[in-house]
Amino acid sequence: MRWSAGAVARMLGVSPVTLRTWDRRYGLGPSTREQGRHRRYSEDDVHRLRRMLELTGQGVAPASAAAVALGDPPPSRARSGGGPHALAVESEEARGFARAAARLDLPLMSTLAATLIARDGVVRAWQDVLMPFLIALGERVSAQGNGVEVEHLATAAISGALRSEAARFPVPVAGRLPVLSACAPEEQHSLPLDVLGAALAERECASRNLGARVPAAALLDAVSLLSPGVVVLWAHVADYALSAPVASLLERGQVVLLGGPGWEPVPAGARWVASLPEAVDTCLS
């Protein structure tokens, strides 16, 4: 697999501007070029960027984090076994899911996604197989102008599997709800919040996801009712992020986490999380 800068930005939840800065300053850029096309990120390039995000999320200075990321050897596919990179997009699981998606076989996609999540956990299944598959599919739909039905049905299958996984870990909420998540007004892509909810459930952390296109007033009403410890807001587009009631939440003393590439600049007082593992760890801290 080879990814464009925009696809990698969406995959990692960072701004394309951040990727360009890291490329220019630290050499963490795409290493391959396809004939007649722009430079593309390889799987090893994405591995280094994930390492960069992991280290900076731990407080390591960017220059030092980049040096470590560049010095780390890429994961060995031949020897990875059950390690975190065993399920690369070239895996049989990914190929099987792609074949089922091409046939619009919703039951099989649902079964494959559920099996993968149950076997390898939400974070690993999402980052190594499901998210790269959806991004590659989205790029093909955009380039060819067809296949939207495949994209929609695949998303539905993955979302259903994630919600079922979350339901396997019913955690009673005593008093304050730990995490409340919602999309910014007009933001329709709620799948990342389904992923977060399932990942939190695996860690026995209760959460509620209000879903897509949540009006500001509705979100504030839900916060008043549930008194969450953390509010997570997702926005893929800056225009949608601007209409989210971040300032009102902060005025109430609410802890606000922001996900997605739409938050630039990040509102003062809120925290932007760059990856799913960081979001999970922050919600649990």
Rank of each mutant, 00 (worst) to 15 (best):
A9P: 04
A9T: 13
A9D: 11
G13Y: 06
P16N: 07
V17E: 00
R25S: 10
S31V: 04
E34K: 05
R37P: 02
S42Q: 09
H47S: 12
R51C: 10
M52L: 12
T56P: 01
V60N: 01
A61P: 04
A61H: 15
S64C: 01
A65V: 08
A65M: 01
A66K: 14
V68S: 08
V68P: 01
A69S: 07
A69F: 02
G71Y: 03
R79L: 12
S80M: 01
S80G: 13
S80W: 14
G81W: 13
G81L: 14
G81Y: 02
P84K: 08
L87G: 01
E90P: 00
E92P: 02
E92D: 10
A94N: 09
A100K: 09
L106D: 12
T111Y: 03
T115N: 11
R119H: 05
R124H: 10
F133I: 09
I135K: 06
I135A: 13
V141H: 03
V141S: 01
G145H: 01
G145C: 03
N146M: 13
V150Q: 04
E151Y: 04
A157Q: 00
L162N: 05
A167E: 15
A174V: 08
R176A: 12
L180N: 10
E186N: 13
P192E: 06
E204F: 03
L210Q: 00
L210P: 07
L220W: 02
D221E: 15
D221G: 10
D221Q: 11
V231I: 00
V231Y: 02
L233Y: 13
W234T: 08
A238F: 08
D239W: 13
Y240P: 03
Y240G: 15
Y240L: 05
L249F: 14
L257R: 12
P265R: 08
P265F: 14
V266G: 11
V266L: 15
A268S: 09
V273Y: 13
L276E: 06
T282G: 03
C283L: 15
C283H: 00
